[in-house]
Amino acid sequence: MFIADNLIEDGHLIGGQHKESGKIVFPLPSGAEQAFYDTVQLSDEGKLWSWSVQRFLPKSPPYMGTETLETFKPYIFGYVELPRQVIVQSRIVGCDESDLKIGMALRLTTTPFDHKEKGVVDTFAYTPA
């Protein structure tokens, strides 16, 4: 199970391309706004645009992870530039923050997320290529 519908399809991230302006956005808009967009497959490969580390347990809600103050482990996140498409915010996995350099090549993967209400689900992430 994935953390939400409309994020990933056939193993690729999907976004929306505005029918008039051609602008690509992520995620694909939901609800009435979706009528203005075509579904577009986003690139599996990209470059690190910026990054940081979440070092404190976010307040819940809105955070739905099951960790406590004692079990929380910092996670890396950042923005990934998908060539000629859009820059997406994502978790960054499979590396240490000391490995990160802006501009480095990354590829799409998935990572498990222990969700308070949904149980263990998958979410998208990028990892060093």
């Binding site: 940081s52 955070y63 996140f77 923005y79």
Partner: peptide
């Protein structure tokens, strides 16, 4: 959408750090 907050991206501090 909710998933963005669910997985821990709904923090103003993250934006400033990334910028």
């Amino acid at each position: 959408d909710d998933w963005y907050g669910d997985q821990g991206f709904m923090l103003t501090t993250q934006f400033f750090a990334l910028k």
